[in-house]
């Protein structure tokens, strides 16, 4: 992988900077900002996924998933590292989730609050969302990789690796025995 290509794919080069289209109009059919090879994802679906990821991992005193573009990592991983069946179910499950939250809240998915999404995720995890009357139930086939990849993307992000965990590419040395106590901070115990 050429460094430049890799950076480009991550949107870290100025020309490819990711600006999320804050377009919530259902009529405007937009394309996803992340370049995908296999998945067919619209701009609306990408935004929806960003909203969901941000509900799963919200902004607190540290950035949330949306600010760190974690939904793009989720899509990139699903696009490149999963088989066709998993991809199909993921996309079908995304649509199913969208319909299910509309059914649950009576609101458009785009208008649901983070709290509503969080309650919805809780329902999914508790198995409380009924399977669709017709067709396959792909909700878990979407939710499980979505959750897992969001967490992985978040923990591996530059912000979290450097600011929270103190990752150093060049530690300079290795110390075999480091004494720690209960109050040792994260950067010490993960060094």
């Amino acid at each position: 992988m050429q460094r430049r290509t890799a950076l480009k794919q991550l949107g870290l080069i100025a020309g490819a900077a990711i600006i999320l289209p804050h377009c919530t109009s259902k009529e405007a059919a937009t394309e996803a900002t992340v370049k995908l090879n296999k998945l067919q994802v619209s701009g609306q679906q990408e935004n929806l996924l960003a909203t969901m990821a941000d509900a799963l991992i919200p902004k607190t005193d540290t950035p949330g998933a949306k600010e760190l573009n974690i939904h793009q990592f989720v899509l990139r991983m699903m696009d490149d590292c999963f088989d066709a069946d998993a991809q199909k179910k993921f996309m079908a499950g995304l649509t199913q989730a969208q319909k299910a939250i509309v059914h649950k809240t009576g609101k458009d998915a785009e208008e649901c609050t983070p709290a509503e999404w969080q309650a919805f995720f809780q329902d999914i995890e508790a198995g409380k969302i009924a399977a669709p009357a017709q067709g396959e139930d792909n909700l878990k086939a979407f939710y499980e990789p979505f959750r897992q990849l969001s967490i992985r993307g978040y923990l591996g992000s530059e912000y979290v690796m450097t600011n929270v965990f103190g990752y150093k590419m060049i530690p300079g040395k290795f110390t075999g025995e480091v004494k720690i106590d209960a109050n040792s901070d994260l950067k010490t115990i993960l060094a």
């Binding site: 992988m1 460094r3 990592f73 990139r76 490149d80 088989d83 530059e158 690796m161």
Partner: peptide, 20 residues
């Protein structure tokens, strides 16, 4: 050594090889 100074988050799939 094109990757030598890349940070872990700079790899599109955090190091994992694409399925293809």
């Amino acid at each position: 050594y094109p990757t030598t100074n890349m940070q872990p988050w700079e790899f599109p799939h955090y190091g994992q090889m694409p399925k293809e």
